[in-house]
Design a binder for these strands. Structure first.
Lengths: 334, 334
DNA sequence: CAGATTTCCGGGAGCGCTTCCAGCCAGAAT
DNA sequence: ATTCTGGCTGGAAGCGCTCCCGGAAATCTG
């Protein structure tokens, strides 16, 4: 553990017999350095095992080489949702080809959020990707204030951020509903998501649009918080209110799974009596009975696009929002 | 977007009418500063909205205030396992009370790994937590070379790192097996994990120990890669070889779920004919038919303990490895 | 009240890198 | 031979902070 000190640029320069500036130039592939000097420096670097100190470079360039992914939400367990793991896989795959690293910030408490705002204000990162932002999250304001490049994943409710990547929630819901309609169903209800989440609202809207465009009346809707339990409860209510329903569009696979359970307990056959379509195409969709027809959105792609957009912003380019397409995955339930 | 420049310490000092050193002292709560000066500086800080620049401080103190969590594995999808999300929740909960931030590094390719070693060599982080390390992972070597504080989550196979946190896999497996034995089962087989994962080996060992200590002979074992499909395949093989088996210990819940499916297809009643115990206590354990009796390990606790240990190491303290307890969760399957 | 502490203060030297700039020396053009 | 390019080069000034250290001031001794 003795002297792990890394060699410095000065030492490299001295060994190569050039000035520090010259050495710096060859490291940064800057012009104005003779082949001889370049070679000498490169040899010195090799011999010394030199690597530029990240922090020093960051201070000089005003660039940290780090981007943050913030999941700001009151429930710390939210992050346990496989959704975020997929986002991260996508983000990482893009970052892998850059010199940027990923800082992960779960800001679920007041303390956590203040740490995050501190990080931004102290210029601890070059840019930030935000997810699961609530409506009144003060972070929105702060991110704006700092002027740091910021990309939203999904849109926070009631505001349209300048830069964001989102799935085509409304389009996906239309896809799902149209599929049910195509099956000849007419008494189609929806288990909607929370209306104060942008995705929930958009999926509900897509359902309504599809119904109306087909000349049908939206047949019934109950909201749930995207969980299996909520889906089950909603399904019970809907069966009560509309015993003759023949189609269900659930705004999440988890809710669809709960609905499936309730339908089966109520003696309805799926898809014969009631056809069901979910949303998300999570792993659970393959394990329900019957397997769930659902709307697929590529969450990795979401992560990738967010990252690409952020990198562009950091590089000073401008970008327009990106809406990612969704597609229907047909399985047994519809 | 005009001039987002944050005020510097110099400006604070000037405004407060003191020297930069004095200002620095009040910020770092160092002694030797008069109440008057302190108050003046604090007012100036408030008025200017000053926050110390992270990078500059890092350069001066040689501490970045960032710790890394590295998941080094060839399969990028491995990270999608909810396991890691739980670890991260645990890690974050501890970091929340510190000034440290979390850098997440998915090193699944050669390029990814070299980025990671670079990060370490360039002193981009103050310490690192390593998970899912393969046996011959060059990272092991590099981490040792850099002399950076490093904590392992789980143990890599065939080596015993100096600092690690691990679940009591062998103990948990004993618990599970003893439970089956306590139920009167004697022809107990195991669906073991991969023997080149430390957890797989330990769980298999625990099973054997419990059997032998009870005077029983290990009745049969087939290895699987922890997935549901592998569990199903293994169960088929085991039923073939030992049609009279009456107990199954599966080294993961996913494998247990696969086994359950196969058993039911084969007409065996669970737990009447065959009792089944899993390991991990994942969400899936509650959704199998019947619900799965399994061994619970707190993955969040794993993340928390790793983080605490790393923080201690960074502070220059020494620590001994931590083995986290497991407990049996009794549900319907055994 | 002189002398010995203690406390407080600011100057200045880093931390390791980038980058501006003025000076240099080829070789090309006149 | 003289001027003019224009690619090299190294000195030096940062980036914003910490922290050592010598001196000034305030406090405590007897």
């Amino acid at each position: 553990m003795a002297d792990r000190r890394q060699p410095t640029l000065d030492e490299v320069a001295e060994r190569a017999g050039v000035s520090r500036s010259a050495a710096s130039r060859v490291i940064n592939r800057a012009p104005h350095v003779s082949p001889a000097a370049r070679e000498a420096v490169e040899r010195a670097i090799k011999e010394l095992g030199y690597l530029p100190n990240r922090t020093a470079r960051a201070l000089a360039t005003q660039q940290t080489g780090i981007v943050a992914l913030a999941v700001s939400h009151d429930d710390p367990q939210l992050f346990a949702d496989p959704f975020y793991a997929q986002v991260i896989v996508g983000v990482s795959s893009v970052l892998e080809d850059t010199d940027l690293h990923l800082l992960l910030c779960l800001a679920s408490s007041v303390r956590g959020r203040s740490r995050l705002t501190n990080l931004l204000r102290t210029r601890g990162v070059d840019g930030i990707m935000l997810m699961a932002m609530g409506a009144g999250d003060p972070l929105n304001q702060i991110v704006g204030d700092t002027g740091l490049p910021a990309v939203y994943g999904g849109r926070p409710p009631h505001v349209e951020p300048q830069y964001y990547v989102d799935s085509d929630n409304a389009g996906g819901a239309r896809l799902a509903t149209e599929h049910l309609i195509g099956l000849g169903r007419t008494r189609i209800v929806t288990i909607a998501g929370l209306p104060d989440s942008q995705a929930g609202e958009a999926r509900h809207r897509g359902y309504r649009e599809a119904m109306i465009m087909a000349g049908l009346t939206p047949y019934g809707a109950v909201e749930g918080d995207f969980t299996e339990a909520a889906g089950a409860a909603a399904m019970k209510t809907l069966l009560d209110r509309h015993p003759d329903l023949d189609g269900v569009f659930a705004a999440s696979d988890n809710m669809a799974a709960g609905a499936l359970r309730v339908l089966s307990a109520a003696g309805r056959r799926v898809p014969a009596d009631v056809a069901v379509v979910g949303f998300d195409n999570l792993g659970i969709a393959q394990r329900t009975e019957p397997p769930l027809t659902t709307v697929h959105q590529s969450i990795q792609a979401l992560g990738q696009e967010m990252t690409r957009m952020l990198i562009a912003l950091i590089a000073g380019q401008d970008r327009t929002p990106v809406i990612l397409p969704t597609r229907l995955v047909r399985r047994g339930s519809a």
